[in-house]
């Protein structure tokens, strides 16, 4: 049972992982992540790569929406910007470890432009502005053929490291997962700094934050740029994973997917972004498995798969909002507290 919080020095207070048990778990996690593609089959590796990309993007959205309170309905479009930028750079021969940050920066630059209205408007109005940005960027993806390849999109070459092509899901896994881990640690640490705390202050009450000396102009745009950077990198990884950038991949539906992920996971929580992205990626897969299992007895089930997915997706959003607004992260916290305090009641 944990009885208190015994931190006696600043070094202890600043430590990311406080107890030896936590450090041991961390080590186990790293080993597990490194070994995963060898232990799991190709299908699970595919899901893991997709999940890594979703986690990065959802964390970016969480920085904007969950921590700073800027609702973005255009997150997929920022991913698209990153994906196209990476495709453009990769086809020009730029190696992937330069192209990915470049994609992130391109997306951040566009994010800065889209974020400018946030200085005048907020809440609902801002959500509608980002929705408009989603459609305008989608239009650009479809129509700016010299760069984006129009409706057909563009293909990407396989990324290569020291002359070795990185092909196949297992190889891409070793790009995506380290990138995801690095970006998650960065995000976690961001909220231990002045910048991150300023974001939270703006979310809670922007006028009060400004009175406290937080420049809304600077920090809102910073939040938007960081969030879009995450989206851009995720988009670039998406491009390397599917080896193509197509306009329909980055639709409003994907933006809504990320919003749903952070709501289901928990707004304003890094763990929430991970849990939510994982959950929302797994649910459709689980549905597909269930349908494949039922289909021999009830053939129409296959036709109902895609509508069922939508219904479950919507029901999850509404259900979590009504019954568990703090999401899976809060449920996890409750479970942990139960075990920490056992045998006493929480």
């Amino acid at each position: 049972m944990r009885t208190g919080d015994y931190r006696a020095s600043y070094a202890q207070d600043e430590a990311l992982f406080v107890t030896p048990v936590q450090r041991a778990w961390l080590l186990a996690l790293i080993v597990g992540l490194a070994a995963f593609p060898w232990a799991a089959g190709s299908y699970l590796t595919y899901i893991a790569v997709l999940l890594g990309i979703h986690v990065i993007s959802a964390t970016g959205l969480n920085i904007m929406t969950g921590y700073t309170g800027l609702i973005s309905l255009g997150h997929a479009a920022f991913m698209g910007v990153g994906c196209y930028a990476v495709a453009y750079a990769a086809n020009a021969g730029v190696p992937f470890w330069i192209a990915l940050p470049l994609g992130g920066l391109a997306s951040a630059a566009i994010g800065l432009v889209v974020g400018i209205p946030s200085l005048r408007i907020k809440g609902l109005y801002f959500a509608i502005a980002t929705l408009a940005a989603q459609f305008v960027l989608g239009f650009v993806f479809r129509e700016w053929e010299p760069v984006t390849g129009g409706v057909r999109g563009v293909n990407l070459p396989a990324p290569s490291l020291f002359g070795l092509a990185i092909e196949g899901d297992r190889a891409v896994y070793y790009i995506v997962v380290p990138a995801a881990v690095a970006m998650l640690v960065a995000a976690r640490n961001l909220f231990r700094t002045r910048v991150g705390r300023a974001f939270i202050a703006i979310r809670d009450r922007d006028i009060s934050a400004e009175v406290l000396g937080i420049s809304l102009l600077r920090y809102k745009l910073t939040a938007f740029a960081i969030g879009s950077f995450y989206a851009g990198v995720a988009g670039g990884l998406w491009g390397y994973f599917f080896r193509a950038a197509t306009p329909e991949a980055f639709s409003l539906g994907l933006s809504v997917f990320y919003l749903a992920a952070i709501i289901v996971g928990g707004l304003g929580s890094i763990l929430g972004g991970i849990l939510g992205a994982a959950f929302m990626t797994m649910v459709p897969e689980a549905l597909r498995a269930i349908v494949a299992w039922i289909a021999p007895w009830y053939p129409p089930a296959t036709v109902l798969l895609s509508p069922m997915r939508e219904i479950v997706f919507g029901a999850l959003i509404v259900g979590f909002l009504v019954f568990e607004p703090h999401g899976l992260a809060e449920m996890w916290r409750r479970v942990r507290r139960f075990f920490h305090l056992w045998p006493f009641k929480t």
């Binding site: 109902l304 219904i311 509404v318």
Partner: peptide, 27 residues
């Protein structure tokens, strides 16, 4: 049940509702 909740909850609830109706019509 959501009255008084932050804007994002309300926006997402109506989007979720739209998805449910869309899926239901499809089904």
């Amino acid at each position: 049940p959501l009255s008084g909740q932050p804007v994002i909850s309300i926006v997402m609830a109506t989007i979720g509702l739209g998805t449910i109706l869309h899926g239901a019509a499809d089904a």
